[in-house]
Write a protein that binds this DNA or RNA. Sequence first.
RNA 1: GCGCCCUUAGCUCAACCGGAUAGAGCACCCGCCUUCUAAGCGGGCGGUUGCAGGUUCGAGUCCUGCAGGGCGCGCCA
Length: 603
Amino acid sequence: MSDLKRALGEAVQAAFAALGAPPELGRVTPSDRPDLADFQSNGALAAAKRLGKNPREIAAAVAETLAGDPRLASVEIAGPGFINLKVADATLSDRANAIAADPRAGADPVVSPRRVIVDYGGPNVAKPMHVGHLRASIIGESIKRIYRFRGDEVVGDAHFGDWGYQMGLLIGAVMDEHPDIAALVESLDDEAAAIPEAFHRVALADLDRLYPQAAARGKQDPAYRDRARKLTADLQNHRPGCYVLWRHFRDVTQVALARDFHALGVDFDWWKGESDADALIAPMVAELEAKGLLVDDQGARIIRVDRNGETRPKKLADGTVIAAPYPDPLLVVSSEGSAMYGTTDLATILDRKRVFDPHHVIYCVDQRQADHFEIVFRAACLAGYATEGQLEHIGFGTMNGADGKPFKTREGGVLKLNDLIEMARNKARERLHEAGLGENLPADAFEDIAGKVAVAALKFADLQNFRGTSYVFDLDRFTSFEGKTGPYLLYQAVRVKSLLRRAAAEGAEAGLVTVAEPAERDLVLTLDAFDAALTEAYDKKAPNALAEHAYRLSQAFSRFYAACPIMTAAPETRASRLTMAATALRQLETALDLLGIATPERM
RNA sequence: GCGCCCUUAGCUCAACCGGAUAGAGCACCCGCCUUCUAAGCGGGCGGUUGCAGGUUCGAGUCCUGCAGGGCGCGCCA
């Protein structure tokens, strides 16, 4: 199935080709002037430049070719050579009926599905999730869903941070608090042993309480820090007691995190952690040595990733400026012999290649990591673990406070993600009560609606912005339910559901669409634009294109709803409009689902 | 010092390989509930797209310079 934009584009391109102009110039886009046309092609202007002819003459020749096309109501030339196309109502009716019958709501799958990994979220053991995790989760989840919907085989990986210094801190802190656990840590001799009963006394709340204390003490107390480092090394060397205790930490954290993510409509296929890459590191380093990629630098082993010996001036800590290779090299083994951040990332690339062999890996991580990923990706290509362009970092900006600086709580601390979500939920409950909605529903149904409204508010507020730019996180605006917001979209969907329930109760049947009213034309033209929006979101990894479409669809429906009575219309008109309403609902719910937003049945 | 990103209406953000009159929401003003959920719909107000040049028939978009803001720059992750 092809949308009108593409179908008409093919006709216009053929007309261009017949004139000896490059056919790709015949690209058709939705009209910038809806008062004049439905679609337009600007190609005559570019073709005129290439062929050395008058653009209006070219446009006239194309228009003449198109004039007989039964799908078009009119073809006109405007301005310096714009070709304006108006589609016949019958064509719109056909297209509406096709979308109504399409289980994919009018969007085409990709021609050649690929295996894709989306790496996003990036939660850590013990470190509570904060607002920064929100964007990574929201954007990554949407990209994962968009890719999967288009037909790719997609894996979403949380890339769990479970192997760092914070684990040593926690192991030490728990041993200090529980002498019996400390004794077990000393005595265990099998890293695969069942987790002892005593360990289960340590709950997630304990980790949340102990980690900030331990981290603070580690900063002030060198002896404490050294012990935590040693315990980290013990863990990474698979000392059984440490390892089993760590497994417990990891288990309780993952269960809790998965639950929190699920409440946000975020679900991972893999919870692969940094620990999973760990076993590959030693052989990988040996292989990199064998390939001659590792060179010594101040006692560390690095991979140089600069090309053609490119250098940039670089200011050192002591103020001197030297000509340094650019980009910086990848530090693989520290001077103390330990693996670094980038080492783990490189091993993860290798791991994924072995178990999934992806065509494409999308890293949905803060824009600030851009340089790091560039270095890791270059190293992976040099090592033969990836090919040029296979690994892609999709950066996003930060969420800032009203002052334009990274968001903080009133006290100046980092806002925990759960607190943020609860704030949004409270606001949703408040607003539902104010509007007198859902009050006759059971408490759990009301809570379900409040949760969905809160998630929709948070996600749509984020996803309507292009991911690359930072945006202001203004709680009042976030939780405002008017205008271009998630709750507005839910409200439109719920209105249709209510309407369809009523139609079903009254035995009103949906039927063939016949487009007549302006509001109906607009609605169908908007429905037709879904595939283009989805394709753009997919190609640019930019869910905001889809969010924009969902909003436009809601607006188009709302105008249609206001202008075109349904239940009181004559039977054939009513049947046609019921189909349009049901189709709009299905496409809207599809788009919302791809944004990671669930729709309630009523509100 | 070097690199990357950003600057569009009072505020928050869009803008499909450069195209017609730069669009939405909020705020403000005016209309619309005895008809399907008014968290809605219609209308109005609001712009020298940071500044200065350049390329082009045409620039928010491409190039150069400048100003302002953010971020990053091996032994944390």
